[in-house]
Each structure stands twice: as structure tokens, then as C-alpha cells.
Design a protein around this nucleic acid. Sequence first.
DNA 1: GTCTAAACGAGACGGTACGTCGTGTCTTCGG
DNA 2: CCGAAGACACGACGTACCGTCTCGTTTAGAC
Lengths: 197, 197, 197, 197
Amino acid sequence: MNSRSGAPARRGRPRSPERRRAILAAAAELALDGSALPTVDAIAGRAGVSRTTIYKWWPSPAAVLLEGLLDRFHASIEFDDDLPVRTALTAQVDALVGLLRDTPAGALLRRLMAASLADAATATALLDQWLEPRRHAAIRHLERGIATGAVRPGTDPALVVDLLFAPAYHRLVWGHAPLDDDLAEQVCALVWPAITT
Amino acid sequence: MNSRSGAPARRGRPRSPERRRAILAAAAELALDGSALPTVDAIAGRAGVSRTTIYKWWPSPAAVLLEGLLDRFHASIEFDDDLPVRTALTAQVDALVGLLRDTPAGALLRRLMAASLADAATATALLDQWLEPRRHAAIRHLERGIATGAVRPGTDPALVVDLLFAPAYHRLVWGHAPLDDDLAEQVCALVWPAITT
Amino acid sequence: MNSRSGAPARRGRPRSPERRRAILAAAAELALDGSALPTVDAIAGRAGVSRTTIYKWWPSPAAVLLEGLLDRFHASIEFDDDLPVRTALTAQVDALVGLLRDTPAGALLRRLMAASLADAATATALLDQWLEPRRHAAIRHLERGIATGAVRPGTDPALVVDLLFAPAYHRLVWGHAPLDDDLAEQVCALVWPAITT
Amino acid sequence: MNSRSGAPARRGRPRSPERRRAILAAAAELALDGSALPTVDAIAGRAGVSRTTIYKWWPSPAAVLLEGLLDRFHASIEFDDDLPVRTALTAQVDALVGLLRDTPAGALLRRLMAASLADAATATALLDQWLEPRRHAAIRHLERGIATGAVRPGTDPALVVDLLFAPAYHRLVWGHAPLDDDLAEQVCALVWPAITT
DNA sequence: GTCTAAACGAGACGGTACGTCGTGTCTTCGG
DNA sequence: CCGAAGACACGACGTACCGTCTCGTTTAGAC
């Protein structure tokens, strides 16, 4: 009656933000000490919340985990358009490598990728909300490079971006080699000769 | 007088090879029309075999799937040492791309990678029996190139190999771009300038 | 305003009494046409209930059966203290014989005794909830008889009660002789001379 | 052609009596430390014999146990016909009480009665080979008593025998009271007045 | 001395039931 | 309307025995 805003006049008890945060935190903690996805039961128990509440707001533990991941690591995408293209791209790859190696994001992504490979909905969400924003930011840098002449015309930006980022994800997934400190720099060095004149 | 061979004088009823094959086939079929790993129950039902028989020989559906994968696609690794290094590597990458795109191996690997990300034993098996043989075959080619002078000294073969193969796996996993026909050729073209003088 | 009773303010969905009854009935029916204890699977199937529901409320099929038995045959214990001791005891034994011969209680008890002989928990439950109440009711009658002089002092009530009831159970278990109509009367007639003056 | 005995000219390897004994012993031992019937697997393992051998000669663990029981306790039935009837019967009941209380026979019988209550074949075997011989020996004593006038005419021997033996089995099965040393004597004392003039 | 049929050992196999865990839904009450 | 508590159906788990089977090996007696 009195809600003057454009919001659709919410009635009844409002959703508790504390519980939301508790659930996201609990899910992340459980995911980190257990190689599989946490169960809804476990998250509810750890967060001190009932199972029903989780089911009401998220379709699966993977969705909870993804929301938590994006909440904590939404940054690490945007970079200054004034930087030289190679510097900007190296910095992006390096930021990713650091994130995967030094923060919980790496482990969380592993769990989420596992869920993605078995569930289409999670796959779509993860692709749209995690990979694509980063891919397109990088592609935009390359297109800028082509426009300014710093990158050779005819270069396929999408392919180059895959070449730059894939090794980091590859090592995260397979674990056959470490995510070295200078991985970003070395990968860029291997690709650059081919895309500059 | 009897069993003269080196075989350790098998006692008891011998294992049925028909059933083994039926199980491998059933697992692969089920994996291909369902995005998640098949259950032991389902495999047993489809293969016309009892659950216990499966548990006796494999620790998990993932292990069944892996054995089936290796059985069917054990080739695709070895290449002629007389070929030029670039030709040989391009052929390897191309064989992988073709395998992932045109055969069930792609879908099977997706399921197995999902299992790997959640289960350490599967991860080890998959790494040791799938990725490492292919990685090392490629690394050997590069080392040959370094030895013959075709590849610049100081090149890190392991890193280069990751650069060559990672894009294919990356696209298989994320599905954000297709496994193009000329992917192998283009990837090699992007890396080659940096490792030749 | 609401729940004024001493009940501890029950929360959550209340237990379904229909299902409880369906389970008890299904277990009894299955026990009666099969010489062994029914399996949890079978009870669940017959009752149209899930296995987990049964496991939640009972530790074993024997416990289900016992609860059903007590539900249906809780009576048959109490008798009028004003009756002469011999009349009262004969009536008790006769009620037992009739129960074992003419109602499902006989068959159910056979199954439960089988379970008792193999499982201590069932044995305790069956002893406490079936035999002991009946034994002590009979013992009380005999003690009354001793007090009033109708039964000879020095008589061991526990032993006499065993003598009175054991033949019925003996024939139920071994099946070597029928539970005759006049078994109770004849047994009492055989014991009475020894405990009266 | 020359086998002169009635035996049907046995050919091939004869059955091993050592193994038979080892199986009987193993079954008895396992039955005594475990409240349920031993499994065929367990017996085979303990006896150092293959499962197949057991299945070849016995239909079930209960049959093994019964054969072992009869082997060890075949005596305890026959008594001197010259003894007074009451003395002879008291001795029989006392022998049973002692057997059930002081030897493994008690525990073995408990297991076998459990099996009997669930399996008709076992029930028949146990009744025919254990209970009936003992019952009839006792009945014969009573009939002798009736013939000689020591027992009152019109007495039902079968019922009296049940009265005498049932309490011992009753206490073995239910465990609600101990198998006292003087149980036999007291039971006979309670029955005797009614069957003598 | 062979020959041979049965006993025996080893182990694969199809079943059935077990008891547990996690899922997702539903029901009831309280804030 | 949010949330807690908990009942419930369902499906898969991995294990334990069951009883049957198919091999190969052993062995006492018949020839």
C-alpha cells in the first residue's frame, strides 16, 4: 500500500541476506575440503539453514557454488584500454593464472567444471557468466590491436584467445604440470611472433 | 607335461570375454545418450550381466568407460619419425581433433573428465593412460626437432605441447567454439614462428 | 491459544498413521504366506511405501511384526481377580491356546521366535512385551492363591507357570502334536494335585 | 563284479572322512560364536574346504549343524527298563537339562530351532531325528508304568511327556529363567501326584 | 601299471536383500 | 510470504551370501 518504488510491492517476510551469505560461504568451504560437489544436506547443515531454503533459491549445489564464485571473484576482467595490447593480454592471462593457483577460485572452478560436464544448465550458466565475459574482454583487446595495426590483419581473435587461455585451464583440469608464475608471459611470447608482422 | 606356457596355470572357471565386451559396449552406449556417467545398475541391465560381475572387475563406471575408450582408440598416438617435425605434430593434433569431433571418443572423454574432476583415482588413470602417452609422443617429436636444429634451442617442449593440444580440449570441455577441420593447422601456424629461427 | 496440551509442540510434517497401519498389515500378511520373515523390500512393496520409511521407524522386519502382533492382540492378559485361582489360570492358558491355534498370532509368534533365536534385540523385545506380561499375570494369580490358602505354601509360582504355559508353546514350535481344545484344562488338571493340599 | 558286499560297487575317488569331520567341527564352532547360523562361505573357510564340497553333501548349513549335533550327542536317550518309571523319566529330563545347559548342544539346538521355524525341511529333520526319539522313549516308559500299575490308567502319555520336557525347551528358547540343576526333579514332583493314585 | 570316475579346489556368474545416502517434494507449524 | 522441521518416495550405492556353473587337479579302486 505504501511501497512507492517501482518494485512489485513485496509482501510477507523478506528474504534473509544473512542466510544467503551463510549458504554461499558454507558451500564454498565444503567444496574446498572434499573433491566432489557438496550435497544440499551438508550445505544446509554447515550454514545452519534448512534444506528447504536452499531448494527454494537455487536449483542445485553447483548453482550455489557458482553464485559464490562470481560474488567473490567478479573482478579480474576489466583492464585499461590505454595499455599496449600485448601488455593488456598478458596481464589478463596472468590474472587468471594467479586466480586459479592462489585463490579458492581454482578449486571451485574444478568442481563447477565437473558439474558442467554432466549437467547442461550448469554448463550454460558457467559459460555465460564465467568464460564468455573473460573471452570477450580479451577478444576486444585483440580487435583493438588489429584496428590500430599492432596486430596483423587476418588474425582470428577467437582462436588466439583460446591459445592464450587454454593452457591455464588445461593444467587446472589435468594437473599434469604446474601453473607456473611466468606461464602467462611464456604463452604470450609463443603466440606473439605469429600475430605481429 | 601340461601347460608349458609362461601363463601361471589358471585355475577355476575362466573369465568370460563375451561379458567383458558386453559391459564395455553397454557402458559406452549409455554414456553416449545421457550426459552423465551411467550407473552400475544401468550398465548391468543393458549388458545382460549381474551387478556383482561389474563390481568384481572395475571399481566404478568411469573405469569401465576408460577401459572401453582405450580398447577402441588405443591407436592415434604413434607417428613416423621420418616426417618433418611440424608435419608430424600437426598430424597428431589433427588426429586428436578428428577423434574428439567425429567419434564417440569425444563424448566419452567429456564424461571421463567429469569423473576425473571429482575422483582422484579416475583422474590418475585417465592422466596416465590417455593424456601422458600422447603428450610424451609429441614431446619426443619436439626434442627430435631441437636435436636436428629444426626447432630453436631453448624451446620448452612441454609448454609448446600444451599450447598445441590445449585448445582442442578447451573447446571440447567448454563448447564455446567448434572443433574446426583446420584447427590443428591453424594452431600450429600460430605457434611455429616462435619456435623456429 | 493453540496447543494447550503437554505435548512438546510437534514441528514438521506429522507421521502418517495410514502408512504405519499399511506397513503393519503388509508385514503380517506376508509373514502368513511364507514361512520365513518377510524382507523389508517385500513389506514396502506390499504396503505401497518406500523402503526408507520402514527403516526410519523400525530396525527390522521382526520389529514391525512384533508391533503388529501387539497392536492386534494386546488383550488376552487381564482376568478377574475375583475368580477362583484355578479357574483364572485355566482361562489364561486356554486363551493362549485359542490365540495360537485360531488366530494369526500363532503363525506370527513362530516367525518372531525364529527371529528371536538369531537376534538378541528381537529376543529382548519379544520377551519383555509378549511373554513377561503374561507370565507375571499368571504368577500374580498363584501368589494370590498362596496368600488365600488355595494353593499350598512353598509352591514356586514361576515354575508352575512354566509348567502350565510351556506345553502350548512347545507344540506351537515343534508341531509334533496339535493344540487341542481341552489342552488348557488337561494341563491344569495334571498340575493341580501337586499344588493343593 | 567281485564286490561281495551290498554296497553298490563304488568307483572313483571315495569321499574324504577327514573333510566331513572338519566341516562338522567348523560349523559347530562358528555356530557357537555367533548367534545366527554360520554361512556356507564361513564354514568352508574355517574347515579349509571348498564351498562346492559342502553343497555337494548338505543342502544347508542347518543340515551340517544337525548332523554334527547328532554325531556328538546321539546318546542320552536310552535308559534301563528295570528302573522305576519315575526314576527313569526324571533321569531322562535331567539328562536333557544337563545337555542343554552344560554342553554345546543347547546353543546348537537354539540355532537349529531358529532354522526349523523358517524352513520346513529342517523342521522335519530336527523333529524326526532329535525330538521324536526322545519323546517316544519317554512315552514308552509311561506306557510301561500304566501296564504295571505304577501309573494311573487313563493317563495320556503324550501329554504328560510334553509337560515334563516342555519347560526345559521353553527356558532354552525364551531365556526368561535358568535351567536349574533340580529342574527335572521339581517338574516331575509337580506332575507325579496327578498320575499316581 | 594304467584307466577312469568321482571327489575336490578355485573361482566366475546371476541373483536377492541388505542398510545407507542423497535427492527432490510435500506437509505442518511458527515468525 | 519466509523459513524450520521433518515425513516421504525414489534411485543408486557397495557388500554379503546364495546357489549354480565350469574349469582343472587329485586319487582310490577297477581293469
